[in-house]
C-alpha cells in the first residue's frame, strides 16, 4: 500500500465522523437560522430585540468579570504555589486543580451547598449575625459558580507557564537593583501575558456558553445559553434558537481565534 493511501485510510474515519456529525449539522444550523420567517434578520435580532440584547450584554459582562477575576486569583495563587515550598503544598495544588472536570451542573450544586437555602454561608451568617445570607440563586451565585468552574483550568495553565519562566531573568533584574515588586511588574507579569491571554480566552469562551450552572441555579438572570434553551423547548422557536446559537458560537470562536493570534499557542475551550 502506498504512503498516501495508508495515511488516507487512517484519516478517513475521522473525516466521515466529523463531516457527518459536526460539519453537516453546523451547516444545517446556519441554514435554519437564516430561514426563519424574519429571514436573515433573525441573526440581527440578537442585537435589535431588547430581550436578546439585554441577555447578550448580561452574559458578556458576566463572562468578562469572570475572566478578569479568575485570572487575577489564579495568578496570585499560582505564583505563590510555584515559588514557595512548604508542607501541604502538593495537597493544596491538588485541591485547586481537582474540580477541573466537574460539569457545570455539579458546580451549580456546589454553589447551592455554599449559598443555598441550607448553605454553609447561610448557617455561618445566621450563627454570627442572625441573618441568613442566601446568594446561590442571584447573579452573585452565578458569578461564583463561573469562578468555581474556571479557577482550576486557569491555575493549571498559569502555573505551567510560571514553571517555564527562566529564573535567570529575575536574577538579572535583581542584580540590576530591582526589588520584589519591580521584578514582578517588569519581568514576571510581562512574561506571563501569553498565558493570561490564552487561559483568559478559554475562560471567557467557556463562561459565554456555560449552561449547566445557570440551569441548576435556575438563576433569575437570563444568560444567553438559557435564552436559547427556552426558545427551543418552551417557545419551540427553532429558527430563533438556531440563530442565537450561531451568534453565541461566533462570539466564542472569535474570542479564541483572536487569543490564539495574540498568544500564539493553542487555545481551546472545554466543558
Amino acid at each position: 500500500m502506498s504512503r498516501t493511501s495508508f495515511v488516507g485510510l487512517c484519516l478517513l474515519p475521522l473525516l466521515i465522523t466529523v463531516g457527518l456529525f459536526f460539519v453537516l449539522p453546523v451547516f444545517q444550523l446556519l441554514i435554519v437560522g437564516a430561514n426563519s420567517p424574519s429571514g436573515l434578520s433573525a441573526y440581527s435580532a440578537i442585537v435589535t430585540e431588547p430581550r436578546y440584547r439585554q441577555s447578550l450584554i448580561a452574559t458578556l459582562v458576566l463572562s468578562v468579570a469572570t475572566t478578569l477575576v479568575t485570572v487575577a486569583v489564579a495568578t496570585i495563587a499560582g505564583l505563590f504555589l510555584q515559588r514557595n515550598v512548604f508542607p501541604g503544598r502538593a495537597i493544596l495544588i491538588s485541591i485547586l486543580t481537582l474540580p477541573l472536570a466537574f460539569p457545570g451542573v455539579v458546580v451549580g450544586f456546589m454553589i447551592i451547598i455554599l449559598g443555598g437555602r441550607q448553605g454553609i454561608v447561610g448557617d455561618l451568617s445566621r450563627a454570627m449575625t442572625g441573618q441568613k445570607v442566601i446568594f446561590a440563586y442571584s447573579i452573585a451565585g452565578l458569578f461564583l459558580g463561573y469562578l468555581y468552574f474556571s479557577i482550576p483550568r486557569v491555575i493549571l495553565t498559569i502555573m505551567a507557564s510560571i514553571e517555564k519562566l527562566d529564573p535567570q531573568l529575575e536574577e538579572a533584574a535583581r542584580s540590576l537593583g530591582a526589588g520584589t515588586w519591580a521584578v514582578h511588574r517588569d519581568v514576571v507579569l510581562p512574561a506571563l501575558v501569553p498565558a493570561f491571554i490564552a487561559s483568559g480566552a478559554i475562560c471567557f469562551a467557556t463562561a459565554m456558553g456555560a449552561f449547566g450552572t445557570a440551569f441548576t441555579l435556575a438563576a433569575r438572570i437570563d444568560v444567553l445559553a438559557m435564552v436559547i434553551y427556552t426558545e427551543f423547548t418552551l417557545n419551540a422557536n427553532i429558527a430563533m434558537a438556531a440563530s442565537l446559537s450561531v451568534g453565541l458560537g461566533l462570539i466564542t470562536w472569535i474570542a479564541l481565534a483572536l487569543a490564539r493570534s495574540l498568544a500564539g499557542s493553542s487555545v481551546a475551550a472545554a466543558g
Binding site: L11, L14, L15, V18, F21, F22, V23, L24, P25, V26, Q28, L29, V32, A205, M208, G209, F211, A225, I228, Y229, F232, I238, A241, A242, S245, V246, L248, G249, T252, W253, L256, A257, A268, A269, A270
Partner: peptide
C-alpha cells in the same frame, strides 16, 4: 483539519446539540 475537529470546543455545546437535533 485539526482546526475543524477542534471547533466543538470553541462552540457552545448547546449550539452543537441544536445542530444535531435539526439535522
Amino acid at each position: 483539519i485539526e482546526e475543524v475537529i477542534t471547533l466543538p470546543l470553541a462552540i457552545p455545546g448547546l449550539a452543537i446539540a441544536l445542530a444535531l437535533i435539526i439535522t
